[in-house]
């Protein structure tokens, strides 16, 4: 399998008195989709933000394709980020730009393509996520599901090696959620990307994951294939995946 794509080594992060990550260790292999599950406020998003260098750990290391993020200077970090595409929870489309300008944003910043070529490329990416004829609309005119699709089209615009998904199905109806899951699987098949997703939607996790990691109290409690997680005897994992309010995980 070669060297792992992403390694999190003994990651610590606090916000004031709130100790969110307390020694997270996780390895994501090339080509697999890792889904990190955990309750709201458990620090899943914080992990994702560490992987792409939006946050710096208090202690520990984030290693992406062999490079330690904390040792990288701004430009080297930007260079590394070109390997990434990220789908944000609420898509985070630039609302002052049209849909095609959003999708083609990186192309405009990093290539010398002209507007016509960028728009052509954007339309092609939009069709990959099943959208047609929306390129001239503004993000505010799109539904939640469409925004996520546009966000995904933007994430794959530069043909990244790693795709990060921040709660890809949250806030969508079950059918739209499944459509997004299908898209995530298709991205993996067609682009051979490594994926890291965070979610608390177990249906989505079982469907898209090669492996699932459970985050609780600042640590990864268990890692395994969807089947292993589903049948886990770990009481914390068992409580979470069965969605029970009774068990070791406190709800208050």
């Amino acid at each position: 399998m070669g060297e792992p794509m992403i390694q999190l080594i003994d990651l610590y992060k606090s916000f004031g008195d709130n100790r969110v990550l307390q020694g997270v260790n996780l390895t994501i292999e090339r080509g697999e989709t890792m889904v990190i599950i955990g309750g709201s406020g458990s620090g899943k998003s914080v992990i994702l933000k560490h992987i792409i260098g939006l946050m710096k750990p208090d202690r520990g290391k984030v290693i992406v394709v062999g490079q330690d993020l904390s040792t990288l200077r701004e430009r080297a970090l930007d260079e590394l980020r070109k390997k990434f595409g990220m789908l944000f929870q609420y898509a985070a489309l630039f609302d002052s730009l049209m849909v095609w300008e959003n999708v083609g944003f990186s192309l405009r910043q990093q290539t010398h393509l002209n507007d016509r070529e960028i728009k052509q490329a954007a339309i092609e990416k939009l069709s990959m996520v099943g959208l047609r004829g929306v390129e001239d609309r503004m993000p505010a005119d799109l539904s939640g599901g469409m925004k996520k699709r546009v966000g995904l089209a933007r994430a794959i615009a530069m043909e990244p090696e790693i795709l990060l998904y921040d709660e890809p199905t949250t806030g969508l109806d079950p059918i739209m959620a499944d459509a997004i899951n299908e898209l995530i699987l298709e991205m993996k098949r067609r682009l051979q990307v490594t994926g890291a997703a965070i979610t608390h939607d177990m249906t989505s996790a079982y469907k898209i994951a090669d492996r699932i990691a459970m985050l609780y109290q600042g640590k990864i409690q268990a890692v395994g294939t969807p089947d292993e997680i589903k049948n886990s005897s770990n009481p914390i994992v068992h409580q979470f995946v069965t969605g029970s309010s009774i068990g070791p995980i406190k709800t208050v």
């Binding site: 792409i52 939006l54 944000f88 985070a92 630039f94 990186s106 990060l164």
Partner: peptide, 21 residues
């Protein structure tokens, strides 16, 4: 107001992830 909205809707993070400072 504009930049604040971009911050809370993660648009500023999105810029960073696309290697645009």
């Amino acid at each position: 107001a504009e930049l604040g909205t971009m911050r809370v809707t993660e648009q500023i993070d999105a810029l960073s992830t696309m290697a645009a400072n």
